[in-house]
Amino acid sequence: MSTTSTATRPARARRGVAAASAGVVLGLTLSACAGATAAQQSESGKTVFRYQGGTGTVSYPELADDLGYFEDVELEWIGDVTGGPASIQAAVTGETEFGGAFNGAIAKLQSTGAPVTSVISYYGADEKTFGGYYTLEGSPITSARDLVGKKVGVNTLGAQWETLLKEWLAREGLTPDEIAQVELVVVPPVNLEQTLREGQIDVAALSGVVKEKAVDRGGLELLVDDTDLYGSFAYGTYLLRDDVIAKNPDAVEDFVQGTARAIRWAQTTPVEEVRERFTTIITERDRGETTDLVPYWKSSSLPTPGGVIQEEEISVWVDWLEQDGQVEKGALQVDELYTNEFNPYADGTFAPDAGPDGEEVAP
Rank of each mutant, 00 (worst) to 15 (best):
S21Y: 09
I141C: 09
W168K: 00
V190M: 10
G94F: 03
E172W: 02
T227A: 08
W77T: 00
Y60C: 04
T57G: 12
T55D: 11
V224E: 11
P270T: 06
Y51S: 02
Y235F: 13
P295F: 04
G132R: 03
L229R: 05
W297E: 01
R197L: 02
L240E: 06
I201Q: 00
Y51P: 00
N340P: 14
R145Y: 03
L239A: 10
D243N: 12
T304N: 14
V308N: 00
F350C: 03
S232C: 06
G16P: 09
Q267V: 02
D80M: 06
D216I: 00
G348E: 03
L157P: 15
G132T: 11
Q110W: 07
T93K: 06
G355C: 04
E272I: 00
A11F: 09
L223H: 08
P10Y: 03
V361Y: 11
A204D: 05
L332I: 13
K46A: 15
L169C: 09
E127C: 09
T47A: 13
V24Q: 11
I78Y: 14
D65G: 11
E137C: 03
M1I: 01
L196K: 04
A18S: 14
V152G: 10
G27Q: 11
A34E: 14
K247D: 13
Q310S: 08
E272W: 07
